[in-house]
């Protein structure tokens, strides 16, 4: 693929490959900022694409496996995520969030699509409790190293939620379940399910001291 960068816009030009933005980088591609790597992915440059995948595969696959629980499906979703990122790199807008947040959202939506297609209710109760524990447990050293203050505050806030609200939050926010599906699983009225989602989200919202988008690590 032949591409010229002009600002954030990748422009195909036959016969030559020019990366004006990239030429300014005088250090290994592994140290390129996320946005630059994303732009590199769009060019089809094998080295930049490989570096991009290597940098984000852990996060993308983590989201997919959390939602789907099936390594094969999770891999397929992860591959689709990177393909979609490649196709949509030109519309990525850093003002809206980090590359990590963007990729996470893509992977999450693809995974939910797959989960919904596979079974009417995308989560078994035991999986739900396990995932809620994972989300609320003390972070691993790796997560602590990457996490910022907002992320830590959010994790604490989720841990403080009443269990039934935490379950509703995970079902809606991670498994993509509707209020009706949550009501069915929990055997509660629809209104109660909606209230649990709303109340949980309201509490978490109040923890956003400094709403800096996409910096949750």
């Amino acid at each position: 693929m032949r591409v010229i960068f002009r600002g954030r816009l990748a422009i195909r030009q036959p016969g030559r490959t020019v990366y004006p933005g990239m030429q300014r980088f005088r250090f290994p591609v592994g140290r390129l900022p996320d946005e630059a790597l994303l732009s590199g992915l769009a060019t089809g440059d094998p080295e930049l694409a490989a570096t991009f995948v290597r940098r984000f595969q852990h996060t993308v696959f983590g989201v997919a496996i959390a939602v789907l629980g099936d390594p094969q499906l999770a891999e397929d979703v992860s591959q689709q995520t990177f393909e979609r990122a490649w196709r949509h790199a030109q519309i990525y807008d850093s003002r809206r969030g980090s590359v990590t947040t963007w990729l996470t959202a893509i992977a999450h939506n693809l995974a939910i699509d797959v989960a919904r297609a596979r079974r009417p209710v995308p989560v078994a109760p035991e999986d739900l409790d396990t995932l809620l524990d994972v989300v609320t447990d003390t972070a691993t050293p790796e997560q602590l190293a990457l996490a910022d203050e907002a992320s830590a505050a959010l994790r604490s806030a989720v841990a403080r939620l009443p269990r039934e609200q935490g379950r509703a939050l995970v079902m809606a926010g991670i498994y993509g379940m509707t209020g009706q599906q949550i009501a069915d699983v929990e055997q509660i009225p629809l209104g109660t399910a909606k209230t649990r989602i709303r109340t949980a989200m309201g509490k978490l919202r109040s923890t956003l001291v400094s709403p800096k988008r996409g910096d949750h690590g």
Partner: peptide
């Protein structure tokens, strides 16, 4: 978005 960010990598 933040909730998804709490998911562990794999």
């Amino acid at each position: 978005d933040g909730l998804l960010g709490l998911l562990p990598g794999s």
